[in-house]
């Protein structure tokens, strides 16, 4: 099994998330995380999907995804050729006594405090999977009370964008009347 990150551009139409999720479920593909959000183009949404597959079936996953009419483009984001990040909000136990230790951890990981109470601190941090997991390990000793974690999002390094490579749309003439023979 190996992990792969896919960036998937989809038409921003109702039901598209259900189509993608349904496909993964019925073909028994393992999703580690899925994040959906808007893009620079209001008609297009972007999904970042982390899947766990045997290497030979990654191609199969991509081809099945590509069969969904609302899926416009799929790209694999390779670790070293992309920037990837997830977001966490974590509530830890913190008192005046250990506040100093907490601050030291937060500084190491570029994390910030976004809310506090007399017994807790809520911390926000972003980063790739390794950094987030290290941070959580470091916070473990204070006592993690609650964790909210987003799916991973990613983008390719460099100046090119996925959209400009893929959105050259061809239009298909329809028959004025009578059934068009689209195959031949």
């Amino acid at each position: 099994m190996s992990k792969h990150t896919l960036a998937v551009l989809v038409e921003n139409s109702p039901g598209v998330l259900a189509r993608v999720a349904g496909l993964f479920s019925r073909r028994a593909y393992n999703i580690d995380s899925l994040a959906v959000g808007p893009t620079e183009n209001p008609e297009i949404s972007r999904m970042t999907i982390v899947i766990n597959v045997e290497s030979h079936s990654l191609e199969q996953v991509i081809r099945q995804l590509d069969k969904l009419v609302n899926v416009i483009h799929i790209a694999e984001l390779k670790q070293d050729e992309s920037v990837q990040a997830e977001l966490i909000l974590v509530k830890i136990s913190a008192t005046a006594k250990n506040r100093f230790d907490v601050d030291a951890v937060l500084e190491t990981y570029d994390a910030v405090i976004v809310d506090e109470s007399s017994e807790t601190l809520t911390i926000e941090a972003t980063g790739d999977a390794a950094k987030i997991s290290d941070l959580l390990n470091a916070l473990e000793r204070f006592g993690i009370r609650e964790l909210a974690q987003s799916g991973l999002v990613g983008i390719e390094r460099g100046s090119r964008s996925l959209a400009e490579r893929t959105l050259s749309v061809q239009s298909i003439p329809t028959a004025e009347s009578g059934q068009a023979d689209y195959q031949n």
């Binding site: 009419v69 609302n70 329809t174």
Partner: peptide
């Protein structure tokens, strides 16, 4: 009746 169709994902 549409003269042409545009289905970027198909």
């Amino acid at each position: 009746w549409p003269k042409e169709l545009s289905l970027p994902g198909y």
